Structures are given as C-alpha cells and as structure tokens.
Amino acid sequence: TFEVERIVRKKIVHGNTSYLVKWKNYSSKDNTWETEDDIRTKYGDLVDDFEK
C-alpha cells in the first residue's frame, strides 16, 4: 500500500487540479501527479495543510 509523505506542488490544467505527491519510503524521482479528488478522498488533511 502506498502512503503519501507530503504534497510537493500543485498544478491546474483546464480547470482540473492535480498535486505532485511524494510517497513515503520512495525517492523523489518516484513522485507522481494525482488528481485532487483521488488525494482528497484519503488524504484531505494533507491537501488542506498544503493549501494554507
């Protein structure tokens, strides 16, 4: 199971928000862009903290 360590960046393309996710126990080269809906479902607190 993958676990988010932190959110690195945010991008908005054509009105759709995605977050660059750093995965726990993986290197930064393994970071992936994930949709806001996918990340918010399980890691809403991390998204809220990133947006502060």
Rank of each mutant, 00 (worst) to 15 (best):
F50Y: 10
Y19Q: 00
L46G: 03
V13Y: 07
T1H: 14
N25V: 05
V47G: 01
T1R: 15
G44S: 14
W33R: 00
E36D: 06
K24W: 07
R6C: 15
G44T: 08
W33Y: 01
E34I: 15
W23M: 02
I12Y: 07
Y26M: 15
T1M: 14
Y43S: 05
T41I: 13
L46F: 07
K29F: 10
L46H: 05
K24A: 08
R6G: 07
S27R: 06
I12C: 13
V47I: 13
K29L: 13
E34R: 06
K22Y: 04
V47S: 02
N25A: 06
E3V: 09
K42Y: 12
T32M: 02
F2I: 13
L46Q: 04
T32W: 00
T35R: 12
G44Y: 08
V8E: 06
T32A: 03
F2L: 15
T32E: 02
I12R: 07
V8W: 03
W23K: 02
G15H: 06
W33D: 00
E51G: 03
G15S: 05
K10W: 03
I12V: 13
W33M: 01
T17F: 04
R6N: 08
F50I: 02
D30P: 07
V4E: 02
D45M: 09
G44R: 11
T32S: 10
R6K: 15
K22V: 07
W23V: 02
K29H: 10
E51L: 07
N31T: 09
D49L: 14
T1P: 13
V21K: 01
D38C: 15
S27N: 09
T35W: 12
E36V: 06
T41M: 13
I7E: 00
S27P: 15
K42D: 09
T32R: 03
T41V: 13
S18M: 15
E5I: 06
G15T: 03
F50C: 03
H14W: 08
K42P: 03
E51H: 05
H14P: 02
Y26L: 15
K42I: 09
S28Q: 10
G15E: 04
V8C: 12
K52R: 13
E36N: 03
E5H: 03
V21S: 00
V21R: 00
K11W: 05
E51D: 06
D45L: 10
I12E: 10
W23E: 02
N31H: 10
R9D: 14
L20T: 01
T1Q: 14
T17V: 14
V47K: 02
E36T: 03
K29T: 10
V21D: 02
K24Y: 08
H14L: 11
D38K: 12
L20S: 00
N31W: 12
D48L: 10
E51C: 04
D45A: 12
E36H: 05
V21F: 00
K29C: 14
V8I: 14
E3D: 08
D30A: 14
Y43W: 14
S28Y: 12
W33V: 01
Y26A: 13
T41D: 12
V13A: 08
R40T: 06
K29I: 09
V13G: 04
F2A: 14
S28N: 12
T17L: 08
F2W: 14
S27L: 10
G44P: 15
E34Y: 10
D38H: 11
K10T: 04
N25I: 07
Y19H: 01
V4F: 05
S28W: 15
F2H: 15
N16P: 00
V47R: 04
K24Q: 08
G44H: 09
T32V: 03
Y19E: 01
F2N: 12
F50H: 02
F2V: 11
V8T: 03
K29R: 09
K22F: 06
E5D: 07
D37Q: 13
I12N: 06
Y19K: 00
R6I: 12
Y19A: 01
E36F: 07
Y43K: 03
L20C: 15
K29W: 12
K22P: 00
Y26P: 11
N31Q: 08
I12G: 04
L20G: 00
D30C: 15
E3M: 06
T32H: 02
D38Q: 09
S27K: 10
D30V: 09
K24G: 05
L46I: 10
D45T: 12
I12P: 01
K29Q: 12
S27A: 09
N16C: 14
D45I: 09
W33N: 00
E34K: 05
N16V: 15
F2E: 12
